[in-house]
Design a protein around this nucleic acid. Structure first.
Lengths: 348, 348
DNA sequence: CACATTCTTGAAATCGTTTCCAGTAACCTT
DNA sequence: AAGGTTACTGGAAACGATTTCAAGAATGTG
């Protein structure tokens, strides 16, 4: 029961409210005697400042928001944890909200955040439908950092600080590797082609084909048709029906994301294809599933901890107002972890 | 830039501040004319209430906290998501913090929460070291709901509202099933024996042995010795050295948790044992890994969504102050999902 | 020693709401 | 029609901090 306010401390220490405030905030213009007395009184009474009142006056809350499509997604969850750890050390609380990539929910969350005066926001927008919302938030004084999404607005005018992952280089490395093994028909299975990560990966995938001077028709893109079965059906069709354009079934699949990897592995099993003898598989994103599966799945890996940390760091720089030396980009590398799920294609 | 306050609305509508407040909060004692005018003015000006100021006056924040050991743990993350969804619908924001089961961090988080006037708290304490902290928080008016942890304080005086999972029944069902298949030497591999979930599972495990009237020496408990390798080493020792007490290696393993399951599966592979022919495996907790692994792993499953939802529901009941009809326990069932990782033991 | 400058200090204003309190108007009831 | 109850309404007082301002004390300077 912390009914003890700054007023009580003032009374106990026999000084005025203003002096207590100054003393507690370590400000200048306080005599040593008062500083000592106030500290003692505050300690004795167990005073805890009321952030609500402070927020009202200072227009800062000591809280930052985090807006992602789904906090339960292990990728996001890890990022959130790392960001939370860094922010907590800096004295901030983290408020989270899942948007399900729904622009309307993004907007209502943004409004709720602004109403609570959140100082900053880490956000992975599900689309660029809410550009105006972010701009408004920025204008209202909220520091904004984009996480692994397009940092540029459509018109290219505004660019937000952002933490980006080099998905393009990663996808290129994986594709190069498969091409190097002799694969010529490789399918890329992805949930959407809209958002930055997928778009960049697709670009890297195709770039690798171009670079190798190989028939780009072998680079098969397959968008997940139904989000329900995690691409299980799509993978099945791909493997059974001899490929998308009748060009023969792919000898290798690059699966974007944990759930899709699961769908692909089930599909391979259902089709009686063995990995890696009949089908090479690369997972984009390294998870328990990829690491422990038999055979262990070759995967693209990047550090989610680093993403979260970097995002928090960028945000903290703005919150502290480190004018001048604020960077506004972080580009994190992607590694190809070689395991046992890839082999040269069987000559048919 | 929301510099528009209730004062501006009052001016625009030509009424007093108090009337605006009453009108906006849908209170009684407002004439239809004023209600209409105020709504119109607020709408026109784009008024958004300032929760900071409101909080100061009403002593409520519209936020609830969530304190778990690790938000990135898929189990917690799913619970958090479900709780967040329910709470968001009710107009609350969710503040998260990871404690790493460290009592000191729990305490500082609790202080930060109280300073921000959080209305409620979902918490999965890492120990009962902080009983006093929770009691203080409760005394300060914070609604508290315990998630899958002991709801009773050590002295048994106070009992918190709690969402519990019937881990005991689940473990019994799994053990019964293995015993029914003919297994007599079954190992239970777990990270700790302290916290409620593990304790209950161990109890259920032993109860099943007692029930079957079988030599309880076959029920081997193995605590994870090093958290680093996710019980890989422990599992290896168990499988190689012919069991814990020289009583022969277990023919079945029940692995508590995703990471431990991964360790066990790696250990089985490393020992050249095939699942389920040489070793039956049951996973406690159903994950992608368990579902997609070859062979698919029989698992104990409970709905994390239900846990999160139920926790939010319990909390909301208290927040709304539904006196009388507030339940303070929810007990959620655990199901045994039969897959391909269990078989009768080979007669040696 | 007189005067200017800097340091401390407390009173009061402020942040944006909600809510208590009184005052007025409207509506019943007999 | 008079008195009593009830419904609205606006002024003002919270809520608990920070910050501005002006006054007083202390110090420095010529």
């Amino acid at each position: 029961m912390s009914a003890v306010t700054i007023r009580d401390v003032a009374q106990a220490a026999g000084v005025s409210l203003s002096s207590v405030s100054r003393a507690l905030n370590g400000g200048k213009h306080v005599s040593a005697r008062i500083a000592r007395d106030v500290a003692a009184a505050a300690d004795r009474l167990g005073y805890q400042p009321d952030f609500t009142a402070r927020s009202l006056r200072t227009r800062t809350s000591g809280m930052v928001g985090c807006l992602v499509s789904d906090i339960a997604n292990p990728l996001n969850a890890t990022i959130v944890r790392a960001a939370e750890a860094r922010l907590r050390d800096a004295g901030y609380l983290l408020v989270v909200a899942s948007t399900g990539n729904d622009p309307a929910r993004e907007r209502t969350a943004a409004i709720a955040f602004r109403g609570r005066r959140l100082d900053g926001l880490l956000v992975a927008p599900g689309s660029n439908a809410n550009a105006k919302t972010w701009r408004d938030l920025g204008a209202a004084g909220t520091a904004l950092v984009i996480v692994d999404r397009d940092p540029l607005e459509e018109d290219g005018d505004v660019s937000w600080p952002a933490v980006l992952v080099d998905h393009r280089a990663g996808a290129m490395a994986a594709t190069r590797y498969l091409i190097g093994l002799g694969h010529r028909r490789i399918a890329l299975l992805t949930a959407d082609a809209e958002m930055r990560p997928s778009r960049e990966r697709i670009a890297g995938f195709q770039e690798a084909f171009a670079e190798a001077g190989i028939d780009p028709a072998g680079a098969q893109l397959c968008l997940q048709s139904s989000p329900m079965d995690f691409a299980h059906g799509d993978a099945l069709a791909l493997l059974r029906d001899g490929g998308l354009h009748g060009s023969g079934r792919p000898t290798a699949i690059v699966a974007l994301g944990t759930r899709i990897l699961a769908g692909v592995l089930r599909a391979a099993r259902d089709s009686g294809l063995s990995v890696p003898d009949d089908l090479s598989v690369v997972s984009v994103g390294d998870t328990d599933l990829a690491a422990v599966h038999t055979p262990a799945i070759t995967a693209l890996r990047w550090s989610l901890e680093d993403v979260g940390r970097a995002a928090a760091e960028l945000l903290l720089q703005r919150l502290r107002g480190d004018a001048g030396q604020t960077q506004n980009r972080a580009l994190l590398p992607v590694d190809l972890v070689l395991r046992d799920s890839c082999a040269p294609p069987k000559t048919i």
